[in-house]
């Protein structure tokens, strides 16, 4: 049973908080560095698009935040499921930590998309569009999880209700991803393709991939910062937490 040791250790808020304190600055630094470098590269050094001119450059913010907000939803739902099945406090805390960051990233993807839509399509927003609407639903799902987890007197009841919403909402993620292929939509299909050649020029693609990696790191750093808060909130009656705080200030 030695293989499960990491899982049990991960379930210990005390062990985890000690690790997270050390990881946070590094992740934040790496995320800001990569995302910043990719933004400068994409905004200043990449040639303009043959049709859209300079307005295409919002891709370096829009796409990374959209990609990460979808992956984050799965991460949140998996954390919720682990919390439901193993009654693991740290998993519930992870779910609670991902929700606000995922909601913020989704909002950024929606807003940057609208800003790009006006000069490109001629409209900020088009109702009934499958991609736009399903992305808005993702934002509401994040808000639902956020609203539910503190809606109960018992912390564990809130976690359970939020985890259920998170799990049911997972059906929306593949819908968002495939919406542009399944239905006619104003939003274009994906340019980065896995099974054939991408339809975005390599010069433009390289900073985009860097921005996506940077965005993942930034997401991890923000979630971990949240997770530390959640551990303190969840364990505020524990003896070890007081000792931990004393050790850190000493």
């Amino acid at each position: 049973m030695a293989n499960w040791q990491w899982f049990h250790r991960l379930g210990s808020p005390k062990w985890l908080l000690g690790k997270l304190d050390r990881w946070t600055p590094w992740l934040l630094f790496a995320g800001l560095l990569l995302f910043g470098a990719a933004s400068v590269w994409g905004l200043a050094f990449v040639p303009p698009d043959y049709k859209q001119g300079n307005s295409f450059r919002i891709i370096y913010i829009h796409v990374p935040f959209a990609v990460v907000s979808l992956a984050a939803y799965y991460a949140m739902a998996i954390a919720g499921a682990v919390g439901l099945i193993w009654r693991m406090k740290v998993a519930d805390m992870a779910m609670r930590s991902i929700a606000p960051v995922g909601a913020a990233f989704t909002a950024l993807a929606l807003v940057t998309g609208a800003i790009w839509g006006k000069p490109t399509w001629g409209a900020y927003w088009v109702w009934q569009d499958a991609r736009l609407t399903s992305m808005l639903v993702l934002f509401f799902l994040y808000m639902g999880v956020l609203a539910l987890y503190d809606a109960y007197r018992e912390r564990s009841s809130g976690s359970r209700a939020a985890a259920l919403v998170a799990l049911v909402g997972t059906v929306n993620v593949p819908i968002i991803y495939k919406s542009v292929d399944w239905w006619s939509s104003l939003h274009q299909p994906a340019s980065i393709k896995f099974t054939e050649a991408s339809t975005i020029d390599a010069q433009m693609l390289q900073p985009l991939l860097l921005a996506i990696v940077g965005c993942y790191l930034l997401f991890a750093a923000l979630v971990i910062a949240q997770l530390r808060v959640q551990i303190v909130l969840g364990e505020n009656r524990s003896q070890w937490l007081g000792d931990h705080a004393v050790n850190r200030t000493a």
Partner: peptide, 16 residues
């Protein structure tokens, strides 16, 4: 109302 639908092709003018 007329909206322009952009395709998924992104490239610099010289490449185009």
């Amino acid at each position: 109302q007329v909206l322009a639908k952009h395709d998924e092709k992104y490239m610099p003018p010289e490449v185009a």
